Amino acid sequence: MEAVYEQWPHLTHAEHRVLVRMALVAPDKVRTPAYWAGWKLLAFALGCDMPAEYDETPEAERLRTNAKRSVARVVSGLEAAGAIERVRRGRLGVQAEYRLNLRPVDKSRYGDLAG
């Protein structure tokens, strides 16, 4: 996750929140981190109002639609910035997958702050 702060400081607040969430989900210690956990987790990262899964009221559908649009807008911004690359397009029953363009961080340069 430190790589997000170091390598992508120019992102918008929303883009930064989503990329941090993606990085938290991506497995550590892999050469190419990837995100595949779906749009809902990213909507929560953005602070979107999300109704209960079983709620099928028109208001709930409106909230879901707005959340999906918000996530799509932010993900498009991350793609345009080069922070992520789409590996697989999402469709019914299949989550989209994104490669995160994050390099490992050399914590030794932080000295005692590295924890």
Results as ranks from 00 to 15, higher is better:
M1V: 02
E2P: 01
E2V: 07
V4C: 08
Y5S: 10
P9V: 02
P9L: 03
H10T: 12
L11P: 08
H13G: 07
E15M: 05
R17L: 15
R17Q: 15
V18Q: 01
V20R: 11
V20D: 07
V20H: 12
R21G: 01
A23E: 06
A23G: 10
L24Y: 15
A26K: 07
A26R: 12
A26F: 08
P27S: 13
R31E: 15
T32L: 15
A34D: 10
Y35M: 07
W36D: 08
W36E: 02
W36Y: 00
W36H: 01
A37V: 05
G38I: 04
G38F: 00
G38V: 02
K40P: 01
K40L: 09
L41H: 02
L42K: 02
F44V: 02
L46C: 00
G47K: 04
C48Y: 01
D49P: 01
D49C: 00
M50H: 11
P51R: 14
A52S: 09
A52Y: 09
E53H: 09
Y54P: 01
D55Y: 05
E56D: 14
E56H: 13
T57E: 14
P58N: 04
E59T: 13
E61P: 00
E61N: 10
R62V: 03
R62Q: 12
R62H: 09
R62E: 11
R62F: 01
R64K: 15
A67W: 03
K68M: 12
R69T: 14
R69I: 08
S70A: 15
V71K: 03
V71T: 03
R73K: 14
V75D: 09
A80S: 11
A80Y: 01
E85I: 07
R86T: 09
R86N: 03
R86P: 03
V87L: 14
G90A: 08
L92I: 01
G93K: 12
V94C: 06
V94N: 03
Q95C: 13
A96H: 07
A96D: 06
E97Q: 15
Y98C: 05
Y98Q: 08
Y98A: 06
R99C: 09
L100C: 07
N101V: 14
P104K: 02
D106W: 11
D106P: 10
R109V: 13
D112Y: 00
A114Y: 11
